[in-house]
């Protein structure tokens, strides 16, 4: 494979006594969509800020396009489009003005940026909101505008920190669609998320992070293959009985997780397992057979769920 765009070795960030990122190694290659999956506080955003040359590492090495962000901040940031977790649009300006001035911040010419604004308004489906004040936009529109803004400098790497947190399902799907298009155009995407469906949808390859460390790395499919079974049977006996029933069912499947609200049974064939359970005279209140997901991978690796 060619040289990685981003390469980190033993990357560590401490805030006082607290270690936010604990010696992580990863490589990101051109054109791929790379994810950081983990719960809040896993160190994903901190890692993103170090890559974005707006935070200084405590130790380890990182190179972005062959450069050290500590020494070449402005030059590295010229390659990046950043979509922060918290929108930081310019509330005093209109939608189009936000895009325009952001391009100017990169030193781009007025003429170039003006052409870009029209193109990006179309991309973000915000043409009708062109002259609207930013504060009057919906959450989904603000997010799309933030992404469009990050594209104004035609970056090679687009970094998205929790891109769909706080959005309703429809807004999320519109946004995912836009990100797919960028991926098709060959933009390298860096995404942090605590939504396993988002990671499965968008990422070619990801690292699963918890408490500042990498727990696993691979494609969504390979992670599921390595850390979970093909299917999961979710059954509920009522919150006071899940624990007790879990203990009785343990021998019937490869692995079992007893959560407060449900029991997860890992198996290659969920329907067959459910029949066996009924045959053994157990009567769950509800049952659901589904494909294993990254959520199950995370549960396996850490014993905890992603969203707590």
């Amino acid at each position: 494979m060619s040289n990685p765009l981003i390469s980190a070795r033993g990357l560590t960030k401490k805030f006082g006594d607290f270690t936010a990122v604990n010696g992580i190694d990863f490589d990101v290659y051109k054109g791929e969509s790379f994810g950081f999956l983990g719960p809040n506080g896993a160190g994903k955003s901190t890692a993103m800020r170090i890559i974005g040359a707006t935070s200084q590492r405590t130790s380890g090495t990182i190179s972005i396009l062959g450069k050290d962000p500590e020494l070449h901040g402005p030059q590295i940031r010229a390659h990046l489009g950043v979509v922060p977790q918290q929108d930081n649009l310019d509330m005093q300006l209109s939608v189009a003005e936000n895009l325009y001035i952001y391009g100017r911040y990169f030193g781009l010419s007025r003429k170039f940026v003006k052409g870009k604004v029209d193109e990006l308004l179309a991309f973000a489906q915000l043409e009708e909101k062109r002259d609207a004040k930013v504060e009057n936009l919906s959450g989904g529109m603000k997010r799309r505008l933030t992404i469009a803004r990050a594209l104004v400098s035609e970056p090679e790497i687009l970094m998205l920190d929790e891109p769909t947190t706080g959005l309703d399902p429809q807004a999320r799907h519109i946004l995912w669609d836009r990100l797919f298009r960028l991926k098709e155009q060959g933009v390298t995407l860096l995404i942090t998320t605590h939504f396993m469906d988002e990671a499965e949808q968008l990422c070619d390859r990801l690292i699963v992070m918890d408490k500042g460390s990498i727990m696993a790395e691979g494609s969504p499919a390979s992670l599921i293959k390595n850390y979970a079974t093909k299917e999961v049977l979710e059954i509920r006996f009522g919150s006071d009985r899940n624990q007790e029933m879990g203990a009785k069912l343990r021998t019937m499947c490869e692995r079992i997780e007893e959560l407060p609200d449900r029991v997860l049974m890992y198996t290659e064939d969920g329907e067959a397992l459910l029949e066996k359970i009924y045959a053994a005279d157990f009567h769950p209140k509800t049952s659901l057979v589904r494909r294993s997901s990254l959520e199950d991978v995370f549960l396996r690796l850490t014993g905890r769920t992603l969203i707590e």
Partner: peptide, 14 residues
């Protein structure tokens, strides 16, 4: 409040 500088400093400005 608006965190505008955070946005500015994610560009190639210093």
């Amino acid at each position: 409040h608006d965190r505008i500088y955070h946005g500015m400093l994610a560009t190639s400005m210093g």
